[in-house]
Amino acid sequence: MPAATLPTLTPKDFASDQDVRWCPGCGDYSILAQMKKVCASLGIPREKFVFISGIGCSSRFPYYMNTYGFHTIHGRAPTFATGLKVARPDLLVWVITGDGDGLSIGGNHLLHALRRNVDIKIVLFNNEIYGLTKGQYSPTSRLGTRTKSSPLGSIENPIRPITIALAAEATFVARTIDVDVNHLTETLRRAAFHKGSAFVEVYQNCKVFNDGVFEYTTDKEVKSENVLYLEQGKPLIFGKNRDKGIRLNGLEPEVVELGKGVSVDDLIIHDEKAAEPTLAFVLSRMYHPQFPEPVGVFRAIERPTFEDLLNRQVEDAIKAKGRGKLEELFQSEDIWVVEEAEANGPAALD
């Protein structure tokens, strides 16, 4: 459909008639609002959007979008999205998941959707807690997190969503923050336009069970010291006065202060298009409080998508040998013909 004939869509057009039932103050509200804004801005007809989710607070998301939607089962949303995208490459398929859904019960599927580079957009709401089951620690909860199921503190080492996505050979990997509205919008837009699997981690506050876990990245007083905005081709600089940077010392990153013998030229220059994800991986391992935590696009490279390769095999096979006809398929093995006259053997006896 030529763009000129598209109706102008507004965020309101993407709101379903269902009451939103997240807790007051939940970070999900902001993500929902920005998502509607982004969808309205893409120049894609509403019926082409499909939101697929698993189970958890975040996975209620499709019910609130006036698009096609599928609220599936715990952890498996990427599998449904894969089948849908293979069958219907014309659709823009979003997967909404959380840290429990995407990294615990569904960790396997996340890996494989990313490595296959299925053209789906996976948004992982990371609140470092199980919300819908009322507050147990999740695979991203920090060591020592006290919850109902870890009253003495979690003894499990957390995994980092970005690190996992990079290890799974994802072609687009980004992080953003629920209340950083402009950054969130821009990151979702970039994910939407990426051809291939896009993975976006959103730091999302759970008001009820894990309130303030990302406060160091959202509190106006301290956030500029704790957040590093990644920009393509720019040096890694942060701080209220933009006087600090990240330098590579051997294989380790280190925080340096600009000026005292350190210049901008000494800093890491961000390259989201780097063929190797080595530096992106280094960035993914920078944690508060030792480091500012990077947000933005860690990696954005091009690789053929799963469904394109698959459908190309179909086209190539047809091109090479013609579209398959059932008649020839049935007769591809040794066949024999029983003539009318022959069909008169003896009856069974025993």
Binding site: T82, G83, V86, A317, G324
Partner: peptide, 22 residues
């Protein structure tokens, strides 16, 4: 493939039916 058949070797049994339903 040339009969218009697409196959997906999924990562596990769950993914296989998930993709089929999708």
């Amino acid at each position: 493939r040339r009969y218009g058949v697409v196959t997906i070797q999924a990562e596990d049994e769950i993914a296989a039916i998930g993709a089929a339903i999708g």
